[in-house]
Design a binder for these strands. Structure first.
Lengths: 216, 216, 216, 216
DNA sequence: TATGAATGAGTCTTCATTCAT
DNA sequence: GATGAATGAAGACTCATTCAT
């Protein structure tokens, strides 16, 4: 993690894949801090303490590096979410816990979250998003859909197909996380209260009204 | 509406500020068409039919121009919202219409929206986000709060103070707009359906269950 | 032609198209001296005494500049050859004079000649020659063909179609010019004698044996 | 055949010069396939299955390797020509076969040919053309002279001293080869036909008119 | 005042070459 | 003796900005 400093001007060997990791970490940090388009390969090389060409021994080009950084960000989210089995998604409480995992991930790993969901790469409107990044995002989104489909199939949600509900839910969660990250100086209400209230709001919006059950 | 002069170093004497207006209009159009990063000062000058240096007699630099364009975009939002008086905010339907205006604005003025709500203060390079833009965003948020306070005072919402509700609502709306902007290639459901459903979900989450009142 | 030196560090305006001409001339010289692939835009800018970006205000890119330099080279040859009307091509003597013009052009304007016929642009085998350059070459080659067609139609040449003869003739002339240019240190025979002898050889090879006429 | 050792700084001890041979062979193959400029030292090392630095234990630098590869190519030409003894050079048919070998060599080893006969001493950058390569070219020219001297001494050629005739012949052949190499995209006539016709033309130009002797 | 022409600094990327093990 | 990993210098090109008329 911390580069071992030798006594020559040259950087010591990045024994094995450590150098590669260093680059990925530095890139993640820089991209997250300054935005994808604002970070140059020179910046990344400089942050790692190596020369530009070294980047190209580890990654084919800038886009490749960017794609890998993004994929990693998604896979970190994946790891957070995956232990939470689909079968556990039985009701509102489970739903809230699941949502909370997502929110906590974003707030605890802001760099990865920005990379995955907030940063835009395209320079002009016409440029398409890198398909690899898109694919990684799709996989993650499927988790939402699977879980909501489970709730839908149990008749717990308001009517609507799982895909639509999943996109709505995602948007609801993302809004909170991304605003908290992007506008840290805003006079937010108490964070814990805000999160709880927001998730409650989403649950209220998605679930069948609770009075359905007690109703006679 | 909002005074937009007195900020540039030199003001052209010629025929009023027509030239300045032309530039702002052309810039807004180009930014919306191709994205902020893809438009160069040369493009803007070309679109207006003037030379690049003229831009610098009207605006200190590109960022200045950008900030002013954004302010204009937000003053347009203001105009869209203003006919919609707070007193009209009496129920769910009015609430939905109000939210819709916000969403539409974000989708139609993506770069203004990005600057106001999505771009972050760059930490590495010291170019802080222009305070004028941040101010424009905050003013918009105040509208949320005012309107929700009105609904709260009428006992139409689920319990909670207006500020908390406003932040939750903002997050809910922002999530949709920002995701649609940042991940345009994502296989979204039909946009119109998605927006309608999303706003419905937010309304369901924020309003008192409708059946409470009418239920017999 | 000679850049007017001002007293500031900046280069004075290239009034009108003079700057463009300067660039073309410098590029021709450099390309011819060092080969097309060995000359960078930086070299060219440096030779003219301007910065690199200026090149791009006069030419879209390096290839464009290269193409124009080449086209000019061909057009110089064109100008040499064109006063020599096709109708004048009546016999061996005229043929020799025509060939001599070609040879003299190459030896007197070596830069243009190199550009037109000797320098290769492609970096790898697979890359095709710029179509503009090819087109310019074809036009020039047609002159050969037209002239030889005239001789063929009069039954003066050995049998064969004009195109084939023209290519053979071109190769014959080019060999002499290009070797003289490329191997100036070689212990050549007296240049005048060599040229005369070479053109004679080509005439002997292309024309009907002279004894055809006197033979009874 | 020709001693190719003793020029590099360090000679590998290992199993003789096998490694060195491997490198030369791979380089010759790659240069022929993709062109000299398109092949990097990394490509060569990769083709041999060794690391880049190893190249530098066998050759001082890329130019050194290049020179040696060219020498080898020319030694191949030597081999092609040598079975063709001077004494066999008795008439037009033998002359044509000899010329054909030269042409074929140029077309099959284009980069060797380029280096020997087409590349010029670079004036701007001081990297003079390797003298070894020039020497190889000169040696080849001597073959021309020897053979033509033989024909001259037998009274088979049109009048002229062998050196002059040899230079003329060389120019004639070189023109065809070099144009075919430098302008590959030109719409040449069928290559085989063109070569045959061209060599015929040269023979017609150099030999005594055939009908002189047999004429009754 | 408006502008044609220019520029320094920056973009990504590739290459021949060498260090240090 | 071989090599993994590194580098300086260079490639074409673009941009926001400014000089000098």
């Amino acid at each position: 993690m911390i580069p071992v400093e030798g006594r020559s001007t040259r950087k010591p060997r990045g024994r094995g894949n450590e150098r590669r990791e260093e680059i990925l970490n530095a890139a993640l940090r820089l991209f997250s801090q300054s935005g994808v388009t604002a970070v140059s390969t020179r910046d990344i090389a400089g942050a790692v303490g190596i020369s530009q060409p070294v980047l190209y021994t580890h990654f084919r080009n800038r886009d490749d590096l960017l794609a890998e950084v993004t994929e990693r960000a998604f896979s970190e989210l994946e790891q957070r979410v995956s232990p939470f089995s689909i079968d556990a998604m039985t009701g509102r409480a489970a739903f809230l816990r699941f949502c909370r995992i997502y929110v906590d991930f974003g707030l605890e790993q802001p760099d990865a979250y920005r990379m995955a969901f907030m940063l835009e790469k395209r320079k002009s409107r016409l440029e398409a998003l890198d398909p690899r990044i898109l694919a990684a995002g799709l996989k993650t989104f499927q988790r939402f859909e699977e879980r909501l489909a489970r709730l839908v199939s149990r008749g717990l949600t308001r009517p609507g197909d799982a895909r639509l509900l999943a996109q709505t839910l995602w948007a609801g969660l993302h809004g909170l996380v991304s605003l908290l990250l992007a506008r840290q100086d805003f006079p937010w209400a108490d964070r814990e209260t805000l999160i709880t209230r927001h998730l409650d709001m989403l649950a209220d919006g998605l679930f069948q009204p609770e009075d359905v059950t007690p109703r006679r």
